[in-house]
Design a protein around this nucleic acid. Structure first.
Lengths: 118, 118
DNA sequence: TCGACGTTTCGACAACTATCGAATTGATTG
DNA sequence: CAATCAATTCGATAGTTGTCGAAACGTCGA
């Protein structure tokens, strides 16, 4: 188990190899990706149980997957009372996407934009 | 071992869940990613041995990784004589990148910076 | 304080995977 | 043909990981 990723600035620009691998591993499990989709598309942060509804896994497994996502730095968790609210960490997936796009032959050296501020 | 991905059109737009997972799994191994970087940034298709130089793995393992990349549809291989020339399959990484970007909160008007939640 | 509830940790297990050496296939060449 | 070379396949093994049940932890309400 890799150590938890903690970075001050909201990760956006460049990923180390180790970090990139950690994120890819976190995304490479279908349940975890599904979980992430739910978290990302929810209007407000989800609790663990909320995110895991309709996932055919027990609470222990759910907790394990959530920890993997957090350890990889893909989500952040705000712990309030007995609930743990998860939300997508902005910029991380974008950074990964950039490093993928950079491999395509027609790769323009520029960044890609999530939301053209328009 | 998943069945080999065969698709007529050069995959570009949308990925099924299974396909996306397959690609992510293929990329999630650091050696495979390194291999892919070499293949992608080479000016012309590389043979297996060429791609594997300076990778501290034996030929059998190299062959295994290459098969994984091909099975996932990330690279294509042209077999001529005793050499197998590998090249990046265009559009695949781009498609994956798109599906990642789609998870980012695109409608993010005022981006209050992620306060390091603590 | 007691119990219910959300979440995590622990211990175990089965399945998967990265790795290797050895053997094999297939193509080229002496 | 025999040797050589690139690549794959086979069999085995060690390490990783997804999964669960049970237990523990922390919080909240009665």
């Amino acid at each position: 188990m890799t150590a938890k990723v903690v970075e001050k600035p909201q990760a956006a620009v460049k990923l180390t190899r180790a970090r990139r691998t950690a994120i890819l591993k976190a995304l490479a499990d279908p349940r975890r990706f599904e979980l992430l989709v739910r978290i990302a598309s929810a209007p407000s942060p989800l609790s663990c149980a909320e995110a895991g509804t309709a996932l055919p896994i027990c609470a222990a497994t759910l907790s394990h997957h959530i920890k993997e996502l957090e350890t990889a730095g893909v989500i952040s968790i705000r712990r309030v009372g007995k609930f743990h609210y998860m939300s997508l960490r902005p910029g991380v997936l974008e950074a990964l996407a950039s490093s993928l796009i950079a491999l395509e032959p027609n790769a323009r050296p520029g960044k890609l934009s999530t939301s053209p501020q328009s």
